[in-house]
Amino acid sequence: MSFLQLERVSVGFMRYEGIFRQHELGLLEDLSFGVGRGEIVALIGASGGGKSLLAHAIFGILPRNAVVNGTIRIDGSVLDDTHRNRVRGRRMALVPQSLSHLDPMTRCRKQIGWAGQRAGHPLDRRKTEALLARYGLDERAANAFPHELSGGMARRMMIAIATVGDPDLVVADEPTSGLDTEATGGILRHLRSLADAGKAVLLITHSLAEVLPFADRVAVMRGGRLEAIEPSDRFAGAGETLASPYARALWIALPQNAFTPGGAEC
């Protein structure tokens, strides 16, 4: 069994319809797949399709009107509330989507320090510098407030925060959105090296082309359901070896394949 195992996981929201009637609005349905140690699994889906909800469900930070069904396992044991409290930050860590996930009123150095304490790995000054240096962040970045960081620096800062506790699973939620090609490559290389060091990496993204060179497998989502899971080396040529027609259509639609005009990302 993989390190992270999802079994028929679905996520929905209770919504008010009119004044009194509540109904459940399903956004993710029946997701089952696993992420093993040493591999990057890329979860691909359209923007706004609710992919991030899966990350939030794993870490238990969905809004209060969310309903989660199904089973999530970490290293074989079911992730319930008590288990989650034990492993959050220590065995699994999140790289969030945007800058708004850093406290705007607190300098980054302090926020890394807090993350260290939370993960049970208190950092001294030297360790902090070493950690930051690994992700190409200097003294100035450490002393900055989050809004003073560039997009790429912020992402690297968040990867640094995520790896403070040396977790076995890293879930990265759209870590490259809004970055230029160079910064994107940098971030994905960092994630690849985490996987190569034996961690399980779940990479949530909307851009197939960007992540193909780095991912081991690609989980393709369509309308809240899992369409297919394909090894990334099958995305080659005209995609003849891809089992799912939808995955093939996505692959063919990529601009560098130029089989169909327009329609870049899914």
């Binding site: 679905s10 399903g26 349905e29 969310a66 069904n69 199904g70 509330d81």
Partner: peptide, 22 residues
């Protein structure tokens, strides 16, 4: 929703009280 017999709630959201009635 998926088959209830096969699934179990991951985060406990049991019966939801309708606050608006109050």
């Amino acid at each position: 929703m998926t088959d209830a017999a096969l699934t179990r709630p991951v985060t406990g959201v049991p019966v939801r009280r309708n606050k608006r009635i109050a």
